[in-house]
């Protein structure tokens, strides 16, 4: 017994080091393994408060660009409104049906990250505003991420610029589906993989969110095709997509809640389970 104590006492620094190393390595490996697995995130009162204070100062530097982006979005929405075929009758029937499934919450990016191999950013709304994990985040230009961790007043968002980000997307013109991912190289581009070979793809075609996504509504813009590669092994196309969003400067964003998400997932699970039993 005495010897054990002696050993522990002599090597206390080494043991403390190994303990702390074990804890921090566990945290690191966990964060690399799957979604929402990080134990320490910036979605908490301390870092949220600090970033909010820093953001209030920084905001003044980009006021002009933010205003222009919002005015541009207004113009686009007005154009859609003015071009509806019958502005008196149509909205009454159509809007409740189309809007019913999705709720939109306005929010602001208070910390952005784009230079790390796995990027997350922080927004200044949380449980209080009704944010939940796995809600979609879009800016006025298109998709930017998916909510990951939520605290009372803040949330962290899995950025498009993260290899963990996967989204069902399609070519707007011909409805061919693929999966949007990021290869970690360039902040201006994402990759659309597994596009079937019989799809006609051309440089400049628009990529939008697909109908299979349970998080985003269909037809939210993502980017345009910049380059087309053929994957030799699988005979699928890999498309280099130039993102509409400049991910290095994000300001106001909208959080989209798909109210039918749980229902869809439950239904799909039941279907696969009953299929397995047969």
């Amino acid at each position: 017994m005495q010897q054990i104590f002696n050993f522990l006492f002599k090597n206390s620094i080494l043991l403390l080091f190994l303990l702390l190393l074990g804890v921090s390595l566990t945290l690191t490996i966990q964060s690399h393994s799957y979604h929402r697995s990080r134990a320490v995130t910036s979605a908490n009162a301390i870092s949220g408060y600090v970033y909010e204070q820093v953001n209030t100062v920084e905001e003044y530097l980009s006021l002009k660009e933010q205003n222009e982006a919002l005015a541009g979005e207004n113009a686009r929405l007005k154009k859609m409104l003015f071009n509806t075929q019958d502005t008196v009758n149509a909205p009454e029937v159509k809007i409740p049906l189309a809007m019913g499934q999705f709720a939109v919450i306005q929010s602001k990016v208070i910390r952005n990250s784009y230079s790390a191999p796995e990027n997350y950013f922080t927004i200044n709304s949380g449980i209080k505003e009704g944010i939940k994990p796995d809600m979609g985040v879009v800016s006025s230009l298109g998709v930017v991420g998916i909510v990951e961790n939520v605290s009372n007043g803040y949330a962290t968002v899995l950025s498009v610029l993260n290899p963990k980000f996967e989204l069902n997307a399609k070519i707007k013109k011909n409805n061919h589906f693929g999966t949007l991912t990021w290869n970690g190289k360039n902040t201006g581009f994402a990759q659309l993989i597994d596009v079937p070979r019989l799809a006609t793809v051309r440089k400049g075609d628009t990529i939008v969110t697909g109908a299979e996504s349970r998080i985003f509504p269909e037809n939210i813009p993502i980017g345009t095709i910049d380059k087309v590669y053929m994957d030799k092994k699988t005979n699928y196309y890999t498309l280099e997509v130039r993102l509409f969003n400049d991910m290095t400067s994000l300001g106001h964003v909208y959080i989209i809640e798909n109210k039918d998400r749980d229902e869809i997932i439950k239904l799909e699970e039941e279907t696969t389970n009953s299929n397995n039993e047969q």
Partner: peptide
């Protein structure tokens, strides 16, 4: 760990700092 918390990096800074300290 505090730097990890602020930059959403899991535990990489904590690991590097503990090793350097040792």
């Amino acid at each position: 760990l505090m730097v990890d918390m602020f930059t959403d990096s899991g535990g990489v800074h904590a690991t590097a700092c503990v090793t350097l300290a040792y």
